[in-house]
Design a protein around this nucleic acid. Structure first.
Lengths: 339, 339
DNA sequence: TTGTAAGCGTTATCAA
DNA sequence: TTGATAACGCTTACAA
């Protein structure tokens, strides 16, 4: 910046003023000269220094479990785009669903003084999240939520409603033994979906057999296999299955295929999250489609709303609704497997 | 930091020294006191200020086309993990295969003074990349490459070899009319794969019909549809298809399915990149499996090697090899479609 | 072993 | 309309 000033024959202060328009007066002719010098010297302002001085950043943190999961990948993609549209950079972190790793990610983000963070939290770190808030960093949870974090906005889907709809859909096709493979109980989404499922069961009078619901850790592929085996071995077996655990959906689909389970003849399936592969399978999988782009857009919007001068005082919670997309994996229960 | 110093009854310099071990002497007892104060005041160093002073960062940029593409998503996931293991933060940017957007991403990364960047470049921005190098920012291209950027390392796969193997595989099953749907010519991967394909054709004496190769933009779904239609309408039609354009592979698979093309009866298929869905289709798709995790690991490793004091002088290029994973989508050509 | 002070590249205040 | 100058929060000689 000093070089530019010298080259243009002005003081650094003036350069700063042409860089940040409206921050002070500068003669048109001077501005032109400065701009020219900037160009010829290929000067680029040092945002770190600027941030030190202004005590603020234009970077946000994005904390996700695992970007190779299509749901999070798509979310990340849209968050990055929406952020860029607002001039915000995105520092990406992954937690692998591990609370300790999540904590270290947060430390890094705090050290870098990000302006805010968008996160799909593991759920096991309420204190750390409160600490984030206490440091004055804005926070919006996306998809998942964690209780007791004052001032954190939430944008998620209507999990209860979606699970209700999926269950009701199966009921409408005549299923009575509907299984649910969900995430672990410390994920808010799992709890909410379980609730919607239970509600639908109660209203319809379908079987409420605790053995029909499996709460599986997001990364526990072996657990998913075992759960599926268990469900099929039940007497009477499950004829419908709702897969809420998006991280394990592919594993489960592969397992169903490998076991030679007829879909939907023997088992009707509804999967949460409309990943591209669900339509490619034979039969195409009926899914609950989440509005991923809207989720990302709202999250960035809420966050960036808190970054400005008049930040909303209250905590906001937005719930977007998901849609059931019918394909070919749901049909009335068949006579069951013969063997 | 001043608060901590006061609280511990020392000067700021001492606090700094306990923070950065080995940077200067500090009595054990003093260190203990300082550490205690840090803890009780919940002090976290301001990495921006540190970076301003030390004129260096522990952040790298990651520039990808599109994180919702599984290949890039997986790459991003592993890059983030590998970087974190080395204490590096990752600023994620997407280009949507748009050179202008890529340029603006680079500007942002330069302004933030990232230490280095890992990128799968669009290929249309050689000057911008040279500029990055000129600013002293370390650069490693991953997957794709761009020519004439001095000092940029490259870690990619052996595209030529992989395409050769895929083509030879089809030839070995008796195919003579093997089509290739590739990315646009300005992507290095497309050019290399095309070369391997051509080589295999030449060696085997299979048809070298220019109408059999389609270069499609990564985001041009309509173009992919049209290309597929064209290939099938040829006389004689293509009986084998290699999909190199990973971004369009899902679209193509959906289209093949929708058209009711029998696989492998009517058309044998090999797809580049072993995305999870390829195994879930019926029939399972034969794929070229790229070593994505190794790609990411090597990229971070090369980059971080350049960050230290003894940076290698020469440009390094590492080529990892891909493996052909046989599933059920390749068989000898059938009698062709009857209609 | 510790403290002091200069300076990293900006912005902001205040005089000229 | 412009120029000095003092921070911002840290590191690092160098002096004590």
């Amino acid at each position: 910046m000093k070089d530019v000033a010298r080259h243009a024959g002005v003081s650094p202060g003036v350069v700063s003023r042409v860089l940040n328009e409206g921050t002070g007066p500068v003669a048109p002719e001077t501005r032109r000269r400065v701009l020219a010098s900037i160009r010829t010297l290929r000067y680029r302002p040092h945002s770190g220094a600027r941030e030190l001085k202004t005590r603020t950043t234009n970077t946000i943190g994005l904390v996700l479990a695992d970007v190779s999961n299509h749901f999070f990948a798509e979310l990340a993609d849209h968050v990055v785009r929406a952020a860029r549209a607002r001039g915000l950079g995105v520092l990406l972190t992954t937690t692998q669903e591990d609370a300790a790793l999540e904590g270290r990610s947060l430390d890094m983000l705090m050290d870098k003084r990000v302006r805010g963070v968008i996160a799909a939290p593991t759920g096991a770190n309420a204190a750390a999240w409160r600490q984030v808030r206490a440091m004055g960093v804005q926070l919006v949870f996306v998809d998942r939520t964690v209780d007791r974090v004052p001032g954190a906005d939430v944008v998620g889907v209507d999990n209860d409603g979606a699970a209700f709809a999926a269950t009701a859909h199966l009921v409408a096709h005549g299923h009575r033994r509907i299984a649910l493979i969900s995430g672990p109980p410390w994920a808010s989404t799992g709890r909410e979906r379980l609730a919607g499922y239970g509600r639908a069961l109660a209203e319809s009078g379908a079987d409420r057999d605790p053995r029909l619901v499996c709460e599986i850790d997001f990364r526990d592929a072996a657990g998913a296999d075992a759960a599926l085996d268990g469900l099929l071995a039940l007497d009477p077996p499950a004829t419908g299955l709702i897969v809420c655990n998006t991280a394990l959906a592919e594993t489960l689909a592969a397992r169903v295929r490998a076991r030679g389970v007829a879909v939907p003849g023997e088992l009707s399936i509804v999967v949460f999250h409309d990943a591209p592969w669900t339509a490619l399978m034979t039969p195409g999988l009926t899914v609950v489609r989440h509005p991923v782009e809207a989720l990302a857009a709202r999250a960035v919007e809420l966050l960036s709303g808190r970054l400005g001068p008049e930040a909303p005082a209250r905590r906001r919670e937005v719930r977007l609704s998901s849609a059931l997309v019918e394909r070919e994996s749901v049909a009335p229960p068949g006579p069951g497997r013969t063997r």
